[in-house]
Write a protein that binds this DNA or RNA. Structure first.
Length: 587
RNA sequence: GGGGGCGUAGCUCAGUUUGGUUAGAGCGCCGGCCUGUCACGCCGGAGGUCGCGAGUUCGAGUCUCGUCGUCCCCGCCA
């Protein structure tokens, strides 16, 4: 028996043909006489029919069929009788009258039905992932993932990039995320680290003269999980020589444009909008703005610095800010809803949330009494206030106000239905700070990574005002998700040493950790830079899913476990002995 | 490390507020009937460690404490 067609293939043009289909029993409808089976394969469903008047023995055998049995059937394509066409099925105009049935395998009753509309809890889905993966939603997602990967490869290939591999067993890095360690049997007591990204290797490819590199590559970070974060994830990793930021952004836009055009038939407007980091944080509160809707943050610090309301004036005087969101037409929010919003911003360390309901005649607000008429006029003008509006305030340090109002903005955008769920709104965020002061460690920490080049005009501040130096770094943001980021790298040893110094690495430390890089830079390094895009997140958004677990075949739970294989698990004593490892549980 | 939600039949959930008879429903499953269904239909049936462990009580799915798992978030992570 040899398969002739897939289960989405047959139509009225095939009537009369003898065909062989193979697949799984999606559903059996036994009418006592005639038995219908929907046969499912990767491509779709076809109704096959067992008729006792045509093949009694085959019909008899079909009584035993159950869901998820694996079959091969031989039969004749025939048109459905008058009025029996199923418009919901691509193959709904025909059916296959079976004259030979092979049961390749019986199946246990599955833990849940293989249908998209069946709602199943995540732990059941992950435990029986092989069953979950039979459902069409996940099949479609993984097929989209495959097509996207091929599309990206084709774009980069035709643009002259080389797909080059980098090691999975590599060296631990001092900064950044926690590493996954792998013990070395041959070198007792020593460890490899799994790569957090191929960052240094791709730079070394540039130094070696390959000029354009890419890889769709697995990366590992031992940090806590989120809906959009897994401990192992896939990156589209790119690096180019003899280019600046413009070329990398253009290349990336071209890649996204081709991808969305060929995978979804969507023409992305280009060039993508750009915001500087400062502008993004000022207007949206976050460095990954969702620009599908307005509801922007407005700075009122100058107006508030002398008002009678101590919380506002005090925030400004102690170096903080007062900002507000005008939720147009939301005057009807109840006390409970306002309390909920206050609780929401408290997640982001906001100590409270003042509000004003703008009535026709007056402001209804616990804080209205603190404002003079000129102050009210200034606020009204700045926020473009009209009757019916609800004004929500944040007053605190810049960081707290921006983060809390930024997340509040996203929250309200969803709640008020301001977001076009069909839109794909890309934006670049540029001119990131090179480093951020870490008060706990009393040093500057690179925002991106320590190989990022400072902007030329800020170079002099490297030693004097490190926190103010902007970097040649850029993030690509899609619908409020950070899709990825990159930078132009440092390609001169003297500057690289200065940066290591600025972030608190002692010369001997930089030599120990990154000596190979410094030496490589000295060997004739071209100017270079690149970008890395989170492939899982990209596919998640492309598939309009809300968790990357739905676009990863075998994902981990929030505690980084695989419920199907039960990894991680204990190691045999013998294995540990070979690795010279003794496990001691800390309390 | 922290905050919150969930955990009852194979699956999804009700019951927990206010402790009290034999823990229910839908879907699925099993059996019977049924020759045109496609979420087939009708009749019948089986199926429970109420996550786990202590405690309070005459009595715990329900109250208390602990613990485990899972999801969302903060921290962490680019």
């Amino acid at each position: 028996m040899r398969r002739t067609h897939n289960c989405n293939r047959l139509g009225t043009a095939d009537v009369g043909k003898e065909v062989v289909l193979m697949g799984w029993v999606q559903r059996r409808r036994d009418h006592g006489g005639v038995i219908f089976v929907d046969l499912r394969d990767r491509e779709g469903l076809t109704q096959v029919v067992f008729n006792p008047e045509i093949e009694p023995q085959v019909h008899e055998k079909a009584h035993d069929l159950r869901n998820e049995y694996v079959l091969g059937v031989r039969g004749t394509v025939q048109p459905r009788p008058e009025g029996m066409i199923n418009p919901n099925l691509p193959t709904g105009t025909i059916e296959v009258m079976v004259n030979e049935l092979r049961i390749f395998n019986a199946a246990e009753t599955p833990p849940f039905l293989i249908e998209d509309r069946i709602d199943v809890s995540e732990n059941v889905r992950l435990k029986y992932r092989h069953v979950d993966l039979r459902r069409s939603r996940l099949q479609k997602n993984l097929i989209t993932r495959h097509r996207a990967a091929q599309n990206v490869r084709s774009y980069l290939n035709k643009s002259g990039f080389l797909e080059l591999e980098t090691p999975m067993l590599t060296k631990a890095t001092p900064e950044g995320a926690r590493d996954y360690l792998v013990p070395s049997r041959v070198n007792p007591g020593k460890f490899y680290a799994l790569p957090q990204s191929p960052q240094l290797f791709k730079q070394l490819f540039m130094i070696a003269g390959f000029e354009k590199y890419y890889q769709i590559v697995r990366c590992f970070r031992d940090e806590d999980l989120r809906a959009d974060r897994q401990p192992e994830f896939t990156q589209i990793d790119v690096e180019m020589s003899f280019v600046g930021e413009e070329e990398i952004m253009e290349m990336t836009e071209g890649m996204m444009a081709q991808l969305f055009d060929e995978i979804c038939g969507i023409e992305l407007p280009r060039p993508f909008p750009r915001l500087t980091y400062a502008e993004s944080v000022a207007r949206y509160g976050l460095d990954k703005p969702d620009i599908r809707f307005d509801l922007e943050l407005t700075d009122l610090s100058d107006i508030m610095k002398d008002v009678g309301f101590k919380v506002f004036a005090g925030a400004v005087k102690s170096g903080g800010v007062v900002k507000a969101i005008n939720a147009k037409g939301c005057i009807d929010f109840s006390r409970k809803e306002l309390d909920d919003l206050t609780e929401f911003v408290s997640i982001y360390k906001a100590k409270g949330m003042a509000w004003i309901k703008v009535r026709e005649d007056a402001w209804q607000s616990p804080i209205a009494k603190f404002f003079s008429d000129p102050e009210k006029a200034a606020i009204t003008e700045r926020l473009n206030i009209e009757p019916g509006d609800l004004i929500l305030f944040g007053a605190d340090s810049e960081k707290v106000v921006n983060e809390s109002l930024g997340h509040l903005r996203n929250h309200l955008g969803k709640r008020l239905g301001l977001i076009d769920e069909n839109a794909f709104a890309f934006t670049w965020v540029t001119e990131f700070p090179l480093a951020e002061y870490d008060p706990a460690e009393k040093r500057y920490d690179p925002l991106h990574h320590p190989f990022t080049a400072p902007m030329d005009e800020d170079m002099e501040m490297l030693e004097t005002d490190t926190g103010a130096v902007r970097a040649k770094a850029y993030d690509l943001v899609l619908n409020g998700f950070e899709l990825g980021g990159g930078s132009i790298r440092v390609h001169r040893t003297d500057i690289q040493r200065k940066i290591f110094e600025a972030i608190g690495l002692k010369p001997e430390e930089s030599e120990e950790k990154f000596g190979f890089l410094l030496s490589a830079l000295d060997s004739g390094a071209p100017p270079h830079g690149g970008i890395a895009l989170g492939f899982d997140r990209l596919i998640m958004l492309l598939c309009r899913e809300s968790s990357i677990r739905d676009v990863i075949a075998f994902p981990k739970t929030q505690k980084a476990a695989c419920l199907m294989t039960d990894a991680p698990s204990d190691a045999d004593k013998k294995q540990l002995d070979e690795l010279s490892i003794r496990v001691r549980m800390m309390d």
